[in-house]
Amino acid sequence: MRAAVIQFPGSNCDRDMVVAIRDITGTETKLVWHRTAELPDGLDLIAIPGGFSYGDYLRSGAMAARSPVMQAVIAAAGRGVPVLGVCNGFQILTEAGLLPGALMRNAGIRFVCRTVALTVENSQSAFTRGYTDGEQVRIPVAHHDGNYFADSDTLDRLEGDGRVAFRYAENVNGSARNIAGVLNAAGNVLGMMPHPERMTEAVHGGSGGRRLFEGLVRQIA
């Protein structure tokens, strides 16, 4: 298995993501600078990490979504390569059109930084098969723009097709229908605001995020 973590100017969870993927899955994981137009061959996983790419200028994720590497990420996603976007990575995936909807300023205006309870809504995807349906897991969030918005037809479609992967067990940021993570139609692209890579070992205060990476190994093996 081979993985790449994309690095933008202003990414700040890139190294945490590399450590989580490498240590949990035993995968050779490379950092790929965003100016690179081509990705390494034979990737089994692409991760877009959290952070504040381009200082959140214009809109969170808007500039990064137009970086040269994103054309290669979009092509890889089209071939079925699993793509995981966390926090700013989720914002970038929606801005790039790989996932529907948009992430707006938190309804309460404040930056939210704490561990929250999530309900696993779909445990059948490549990313969530380490969990069971309806299970609650605790994973930290740290964001200012995590308020998921989509029109009601899109939300109905996402729910009807099982594309809501995670839901907040409480109102964290005003997200429509408490959506915390969504899948693309093919199920190989997941965007989520909570940070699974920050909850992978006992010293983090829990391991709620660890099974996401363990599930990916089972999917790809």
Binding site: L58, R59, A62, R66, E95, P100, A102, M104, F149
Partner: peptide
């Protein structure tokens, strides 16, 4: 449409 506005919102 490509950059300055996000047509979803």
């Amino acid at each position: 449409t490509k950059l300055l506005a996000n047509m979803v919102i």
